[in-house]
Design a protein around this nucleic acid. Sequence first.
DNA 1: CTGGGCATCT
DNA 2: AGATGCC
Length: 716
Amino acid sequence: MDQSEDEMEEDEAEWRSSFVDSVPPSPAAASVSGVSKTPAPAHRVILHFDLDCFYAQVEMIRNPALREVPLGIQQKYIIVTCNYVARQQGVTKLMSVTDAKEKCPQLVLVKGEDLTHYREMSYKMTELLMSYCPLVERLGFDENFMDVTDMVERRLAEASGSKNFSFKGHVYDHPSADVEASDHPRLALGSHIAAELREAIHRKLGLTGCAGIATSKLLAKLVSGTFKPNQQTTLLPEKVGDIMVCLSSLRKVPGVGHQTAKRLQALGLVTVKDLQVFPLNDLVREFGGPSAQRLKNLALGVDDSPVTPTGAPQSLSDEDSFKKMSSTKEVLEKIQELLSSLVERMHKDGRQPQTFRLTIRRYSATNKWFSRESRQCPVPNHTGQKIMSGSCDDAVAQLVPLAMKLFHKMVDSSATFHLTLINVCFSNLQTRGAAAGGKGSITSFFTHSTSPRKTQIFSAQSQQEDSSQSRCVDHQLSTHSGITQHTSQKTVTTKSPCSSEGTLHGFKRKQSPVVAVEARPLQEVSCSKARSDPDETDNTVTHRLPPDVDPEVFRLLPEEIQKELLSSAYTKSHSSTSRTSVEVVDVPHKTKNKSPKSFSDSQNIEDVSRLDPSHRQSTVSPAGTSVSPGENIMEEGKMSFPQSSDCKFPGNVDPKVFSELPPDVQKELMSEWKQQKPVLKSPSSRKPGRSLMTKDRKTAGKGSQTNNLLKYFKPS
DNA sequence: CTGGGCATCT
DNA sequence: AGATGCC
């Protein structure tokens, strides 16, 4: 039964009494939002944490010298955030680089387009909070909501004797000292918990931030920013009306975005008060029932939405924006670059993506920031396996052609086009292994993000749990040993950005294979035998089977494999030497801003060498850092070439893709893979001629992973 | 000179 | 697949 029992009674007796937490059915007052799916405790204690200039803090931890200078984090031409030294000089968030430099000529800029470090720190923060109580919901990378109602009740029970209640930090609209103590013991305890958590965050992660303590997410969020850097504020119920009315416009209400604000304005509503008194019926006409009620409630400061544990992300994506991209070659290279990084992240996550999506944004004078278009498709199982097994290069080689196919569904490359953004995304992430506990997926970040091992078990268990018993751990925050976390971490020795890669290979091609192509000189390119129908493709099976493939055998294969074969088969091939041929092609590519495989951690802050000529602002190169000589370089070097030993087969390469490359590039690619090919791996396995089949199928199941199925067919 | 994620709802 | 929202 409701364990809420243990709580004490007292104070606001009435309303809370009936259904404090457990509350079964009657939502009573909660009915407000129309949607009554989750009862929502009548009185909760919700915390909202908001880290101070998050990206800037992460960079200052990585390079302490930055603490003393005005620092701006730059993404393209925008300062997305800056430290307080810079703010003193007039720099603000989302200011253009030009304006910022004008205001503060000495502003030091660090590029922040690669979110790796921010994401890692962000999850450490969430994990830390979760170690005290599982009900933690993320909002972006730098904010977290936490429902500490249970923790508060427990403390209330323990310390029932001492009535010494006071608030930690500020209390909204209360001059200060006059603590109205125990009229609100729960919120007061919440303020203590918030203070302890902020201290833990600072001690263990080196981060400072603000916290808001209130009875709902809406209110906690609104109040948290009352006193800005590194402070906390509690909002008492009697001040709800005040805090809402003080908002300068409806747009300030969380949940009211750009579009909604415009629609409201069209109805003549501009201030919060306007919406509070506006007839609900009229609102319903515009927004529909549920949305109307929700909006009105928000204006009134009413929000019964629960803190929903976020857990591991449901999708992983990587994107880049630019001024102009108008050739297929550039698109291909960009996709390859984005995929290399994304696949690496996906591998670390540990889950297997079932869906891949490609999104683009076209240039358009009018609607510049909108209109994104996307196409998605399933991720072939064997590709997902490559990701999970760590054969990231192979996976990328298989995904690039898929992505190009999706691209061509949206863009007619024979006509001119002008893109300003490309995004690649994996979703429908499936926890591997048997126990599919759909939800338990705490995988990734939670488990291995930090140091592999110590990781927290707690996170795994805490995750799902029936709300009824989601107990907070509340081990005294102070001692709290369980959590691990390495405090300030790694970066002390940050790696130096600069040189490592730029110099290394002047050519800068990263190691990742871009396209796998089967190369045989086209003997008859198209099919010889099996062709049955000319058309379509993707699904039609037999057409275009390579000459050496036995159609009968082909039919027995799983569909994905058939597809793979078809796509790789329809590329040209050359049979010259005997090997099969599948080559991995490496395209010279620029950039790399994303880290290639193995050293994900190292990331450069600046990475010049990018293709974008334009930016090269004065990025900083941190003083201390320096490179560790040997290692980085070595790593890099070896990766780039020889390494590809296990090359792979072609996956599906769109011939179109390959053919679109400039001749010299094609040539280079060809010779490139030629070199790699000899390496170990499979060549040997090729069984004699095509007798294959049956048994091969079997073997194929498992061992063949690294090599393509083509080997079974290929004879020659 | 407008970033790079994420989520939810339709 | 798109819109919208939030950081």
